[in-house]
Nucleic acid binder design. Structure first.
Length: 260
DNA sequence: ATGGCGTACACCGTACGA
């Protein structure tokens, strides 16, 4: 089972690229973030014709997440379901979960936070805390659970190009890193790092200044697996090729292959 | 990198992303 994740920065703009990547990769599951599109405008038919079901939690203009899968998704859940649906953390469509081929899959788009001083920063921290609570209330670490998405945090110095200059700033601050590690402490393994130990492997590059072509990016998109699932991870990587296509998303694809 | 790009919605600019 090949599982992947991709922040597409508008599904309406990137639909043909998603199709192209699915055809090339033959992925069984693709988690998507930043659809920027309401449910009724999601291109269900395009992916349906290619043999993929879609579990969608869409929203106009901002956010929006989905899971594409060859097998029909079961028990679809939207948002941080341990909180009320009208809770402030559930106003933005950032979480969708479904069971596919016996594996619980989660597509997550964590808040950016803007800056450490921004009023959006406490929202980011609260979202991380409640994300961990969601895991504790809905899952056990011995289950087959795969959490995919854009976490908007670079885990370590090797996950960004300029760790010294950046110091304590958004996406790399000790507060954000601690919040992400608390999510991982549920019992999750970073699937990319199982098979790739080197520094300088990124999943996002700023559009401005041609940062991709300068090799200056960050690893902020992840595929996390519970231990029993991680043991079955035969391969994983970041596929940079979509970042070189015409009119690309600023993020690229992270994927992992499991022997199931 | 932080005016430098891209997307959405609307309007001919503003909000937001990371």
């Amino acid at each position: 089972m090949k599982i992947a994740t991709w922040n597409v920065n508008s599904i309406r703009v990137r639909a043909e690229q998603v199709l192209k990547w699915l055809e090339r990769s033959d992925a069984d599951v693709l988690c998507l973030q930043e659809l920027k599109t309401p449910d009724e405008e999601f291109p269900y038919d395009l992916f349906g014709e290619a043999g993929y079901f879609a579990a969608v939690a869409g929203q106009r203009t901002y956010n929006g997440v989905a899971i594409l899968s060859k097998e029909e998704p079961k028990d679809i859940s939207r948002g941080l379901s341990h909180l009320p649906s009208d809770h402030p953390l559930n106003e933005q469509r950032r979480i969708v979960a479904a069971t596919i081929g016996g594996v619980r899959i989660l597509s997550a788009y964590m808040p950016n936070g803007e800056s450490l001083e921004s009023e959006k920063f406490p929202f980011k921290m609260e979202f991380f805390r409640e994300f961990r609570n969601y895991l504790d209330k809905n899952h056990e670490p011995d289950e087959g659970l795969c959490i995919c998405g854009d976490f908007n945090v670079a885990r370590e110095a090797i996950d960004l190009y300029n760790p010294e200059e950046r110091g304590e700033s958004i996406l790399v601050s000790s507060k954000e890193r601690r919040a992400l590690e608390e999510v991982l402490d549920f019992g999750l393994t970073d699937a990319f790092r199982l098979h790739n130990k080197e520094q300088g492997r990124y999943s996002w590059w700023d559009y401005r200044g041609g940062m991709y072509w300068k090799g200056k990016g960050m690893r902020i998109d992840y595929l996390f697996a519970t231990r029993p699932l991680a043991k079955l991870c035969a391969a994983s990587d970041i596929d940079e090729s979509p970042r070189r296509w015409k009119r690309p998303s600023d993020h690229t694809v992270v994927w992992a292959e499991f022997d199931i």
